[in-house]
Structure formats: C-alpha cells, structure tokens
Design a binder for these strands. Structure first.
Length: 212
DNA sequence: GCAATGATGCACT
DNA sequence: GTGCATCATTGCG
C-alpha cells in the first residue's frame, strides 16, 4: 500500500454546503475513503449525479420528508444511503444548508486503496475495472450499508483507535486536468434530459456506455 | 460486444 | 399492487 498521509484528512463541511451542481463537479477527482475493522478501502470519484429536492422530480426528496429520505434534509457533508431495487445500497453526499434537500449520488470510483479487500467483498474473479463501476458495486466494495445513512463524512478516521470511518479527502497526485463531461442521469424516468451527471471523460472506471 | 431478464426489499399509491 | 437513482447472468452475434 502506498502513502496514505493525504488521505486521512476529511474535507470540511464548508466544501459540501454550496450549490449542488457546483459540489457535484468539485467532487470529481476527490477520494472517497472507508475504514472498517478489516482495513482501509478508497477510490477516486470519477462519476456523480446531482439530485435536488423540491424542484427535481427525479429526486427522492421531490415530495415530503420521509424516514427514507430524511438524511437529504439534514446538514451538508453527511451520507444519504438507501436500498435500491431491494438489494443494492447507493451512497449520496448531502449538499446545501440544513433543511434544503439535495445530494450528490456517487456512481463510480477508480479503485485506489485496498483492492484486495474490495475483491474479497465483490468476488475473487472481479477485475479492477468492475470493482467500483456503478453505485451498487462501489458500496459493496467499500462495505457501505444503510448503517452509514446519516454518517458525518467530515469527521474522518481520527488519529488512532477509530475502527469505523467514512469520509471524503483530497486526492494526492491524481491528474486534475482530466476533462469533466456532463450527460443526463442514468436509470431515471423523470427529468430525463437534465445534464446533471458528471464524469471524467474517457476514464475506464466510469459506468454506463463508454464515455465520449 | 450487446440486449433481455430475473432477483429482491421497501416506499408509496 | 406498482415502481424503482441496480446488477449478474444468459443468450445471441
């Protein structure tokens, strides 16, 4: 494993409280990290989708606050994790100020740390490209479940004994000049034309059809 | 390579 | 009962 010194400092809450579309673009190239008793896993965010609240008919928070979407209404920098299609978890990062329901869905990571542990969770025959390519897959690789719903991503792993952590950090020497492209969001049936999906153009870890 | 499909839990009508 | 912010597998080229 490489040097992880830059990885242990979580981004502050101020990073997440801006306009959702801005935060979504800014999250591209950051690292999503997860520490459990089994070890550290982390990947570079290469694909996200923005979901707003009352004005976005594709959002889980389009209607009223419910037990499921509660985290989207909370303070920025928290996780919103939900169960999709009865079997996969997906993680969002909450944006905007508390009371304003909005979040960014993390759709794909370029695996960076703990690939062996990811493969234990995902399956021994899974290639690097498919470890974290897709919102359900990356949650399985990082062991993100609904237990992490509402988790504060700005706390970080701490200096010493914290066994369980989930946070977002700067990425060390990742090529930040990678071009960010936009497209409609995937897998939705409303607001299908809004270009609120952002991804690294040409990156092989992006989900869906080959990026153009 | 691609499209079609079943699995499966739960929020919501 | 219906509809998902999905994925792995199958069958075909």
């Amino acid at each position: 494993m490489e040097d992880v010194s830059s990885l242990v400092a979580p981004l502050p809450q101020a990073f997440f409280e801006g306009a959702t579309l801005d935060v979504a673009r800014a999250l591209i190239g950051k690292t999503l990290a997860r520490k459990t008793a089994r070890g550290l896993t982390a990947g570079i965010i290469v694909e996200v989708e923005a979901y707003a609240g009352a004005m976005d008919p594709a959002s889980h928070a389009y209607r009223a606050l419910t037990p499921r979407n509660r985290s989207m209404f909370g303070p920025p920098g928290r996780a919103y994790v939900y169960l999709s299609y009865g079997m996969h978890c997906c993680i969002n990062i909450v944006t905007e100020r508390e009371g304003e329901a909005a979040a960014v869905l993390v759709r794909a990571l370029e695996p960076a740390y703990g690939l062996a542990l990811m493969r234990e969770r995902r399956g021994a025959s899974i290639g690097d490209r498919d470890l974290c390519r897709g919102p359900g897959r990356l949650c399985q690789a990082l062991d993100i479940t609904r237990e992490q719903d509402g988790a504060d991503l700005t706390v970080g792993p701490g200096m010493d004994g914290v066994e369980d952590g989930l946070w977002v950090a700067e990425t060390g020497d990742w090529a930040m000049d990678a071009p960010i492209a936009a497209s409609p969001r995937i897998g939705i049936t409303r607001a299908v034309d809004w270009p609120w999906r952002f991804y690294v153009a040409g990156n092989r870890y992006v989900s869906g059809r080959p990026a153009r």
